[in-house]
Design a protein around this nucleic acid. Sequence first.
DNA 1: GCCAACGTTGGC
DNA 2: GCCAACGTTGGC
Length: 155
Amino acid sequence: MARRYWLMKTEPGTFSIDDLARRPGRRAFWDGVRNYQARNLIRDEIRPGDGVLVYHSGIARPAVAGTAVVVGTAAPDPTQFDRRSPHHDPAADPQSPRWYGVEIELEGIFAKPVTLDELRATPGLEAMVVLRRGNRLSVTPVRPEEWSIVVARGA
DNA sequence: GCCAACGTTGGC
DNA sequence: GCCAACGTTGGC
């Protein structure tokens, strides 16, 4: 199966690409996704080896901050069962988990983050799902051409 | 199955 | 902090 590409949003105040860089092996389990569409992508579509654009949201200048690679298959997100987690889901059943996450490993932090404004202004990126008005999906598919353009601009 | 109310996301 | 957009919940 061909390598595919994704964009994953995170609020850097909660978990940033620098936090990822400091993790052992520069790896982290991408948890806390609580949207069914995004869950379905993680559980059913994302494969080891896929590329990830790590996107910082909720800040003055939202931007793609770097890239990561998927290093595992989807697994139940343990935070759904953790009563002390902000992502705890009282309705989640360990017998049939509702929420999934996936392990990723940092590839590189961009020398120059590719800002949301820049994404909007760059030819070839007009169709990026993350740019759609009202888009709130925390995991969105990225086309190979889009991946190439963004990486070329950031690296 | 409809839809109003509510909660969350995320840019600005 | 505001608010548009959208997802989820729950009464009916």
